[in-house]
Design a protein around this nucleic acid. Structure first.
Lengths: 254, 254
DNA sequence: TATAAACCTTTACGCAACGTCAAGGTCAAT
DNA sequence: ATTGACCTTGACGTTGCGTAAAGGTTTATA
């Protein structure tokens, strides 16, 4: 039985272009060329194609497949195991991606369910209460009632979109912090970028930004175990690292 | 603070080529161009780049990111959810891939542990025994002792490599059968390809191939519940479908 | 102040595995 | 003889940059 490109292509469920490509890269050449220049494939080529498609389904690159079917002594098993490692890595990365996308969606969803005005107001009020309960005393002690009242007012004044952005920014601070900690250098560019992100996050609820207040908060991140726990939960040593980065960022470390 | 390409690139942990590319596709243009033609970025561009990189880490395409940050009214949430669907699909595919690679590796590993001559011989002997116990009678009844003895001899004569290939071929028959059953057409190309794979698998242990013997085995696949169970376990209706395909393949259905 | 090192620019090819025209020749059937 | 289905090669497009190449600019140092 002999096949032209399209016949073989239909048999195997691929396109004729693919067969021409396989010819071009030398992984599957036709048995012969007809007098009119047509590619003619025979049984041996059908078998070879089956092998190629089999490995292709396993996700191996054509280059790799070429090695495997051209070299009888090729260590197929090792190639497969290496390939599996790559696939597992890919999946781990994908899992991370999906988790991050989920987080981001959750934040956005939060802003959507808040479209209901009542709920939205209630949610923010709760957040302000929590905020006050948790950090109120320290901030009040350091910067007075005026600042925290302003901060709460600002929080109340945010619309859903702004609020979502604020939470997203919070997530980005965490993400950025993780990478920065990995560098180990709080004066490095990544750490300083993180400090800047943190500043951007702050000014959503602070009506006036000052280096001193920023630096003061940084100190508190380490001194107060509730703050420290929050950042250290995300990344070991996160609170101290963030403090150092902010002190350098605000120039208050000299 | 103003940045040239490389400074901004280092700050963000990307290459200067990436910034030039982002300029080229219009996703991030510099604040201004210096008199000497240098790209100069300012704070607004740093912020925009942070956004871009954030979404890039979530795996969105630059085209998509462009939409999101250019259009304030763009439905970010829907975009993210669609993106998540794609990611989940990708992961499902990856899981399938990994499962298949694992299966193939398992088969190959089997052939490797058999490198130990004793074990190898023992394993094959066991397989022959099983073979004989399970299917021996039927085959003997239909084709006589001669054929099964030949088959066993051939099995004994296989080396590890051949044996692995044989098992791999068996897996491919199953895979191919699954797809073919999905088409519902036993005369279709996929089904006929499956029948041909099955023939190839057979001739590893049969020293002579005949359409009649092949067709006879196909009939047995449905008649004998142990055979049927084996193929139906892989794919509902697999045994009957395979029989029909083989009957058409061997031309004994007329 | 000359010169080298470190920047910057545009242009353009390369990558993986084909999809998709385009322009033109071939084959089978009517 | 014509039509329609098939074949050929050639070449550009896809995605997100990496990587020269060839040449101008800025900065630091001797």
């Amino acid at each position: 039985m002999e096949y032209t490109v399209q016949k073989l292509a239909r048999l195997a469920g691929i396109s004729s272009r693919t067969l021409r490509y396989y010819d071009e890269i030398g992984i599957l050449k036709p048995a012969r060329i007809s007098s009119s220049g047509y590619r003619i494939y025979a049984q041996a080529e059908v078998d070879r194609l089956q092998q190629i498609l089999f490995f292709r389904e396993l996700g191996l690159s054509l280059e790799r497949i070429k090695d495997i079917i051209n070299t009888p002594s090729f260590d197929e098993l090792r190639a497969l195991k290496e390939h599996r490692e790559k696939l597992l890595e890919k999946r781990a990365q994908l899992d991370l991606l999906i988790a991050n996308v989920n987080k981001t969606i959750a934040v956005n969803e939060g802003s959507i369910t808040m479209t209901d005005k009542e709920k939205f107001a209630g949610f923010k009020q709760k957040l302000i209460d929590d905020n006050e309960k948790t950090y109120g005393k320290e901030i009040r002690a350091k910067y007075g009632d005026e600042k925290i009242n302003q901060s709460n007012e600002r929080l109340m004044g945010m619309n859903e979109k702004q609020y979502a952005k604020w939470e997203e920014l919070g997530l980005r601070v965490i993400e950025s912090l993780k990478k920065a900690v990995a560098t180990g250098d709080p004066a490095g560019e990544l750490a300083q970028m993180t400090a800047d992100l943190h500043r951007q996050w702050l000014i959503y609820t602070w009506d006036s930004y000052s280096k001193e207040a920023h630096a003061g908060l940084a100190q508190m991140y380490v001194a107060d175990e509730r703050f420290a726990a929050f950042y250290n939960e995300k990344q070991a040593g996160g609170a101290e690292f963030l403090r150092d980065a902010i002190l350098i960022y605000t120039g208050t470390n000299k």
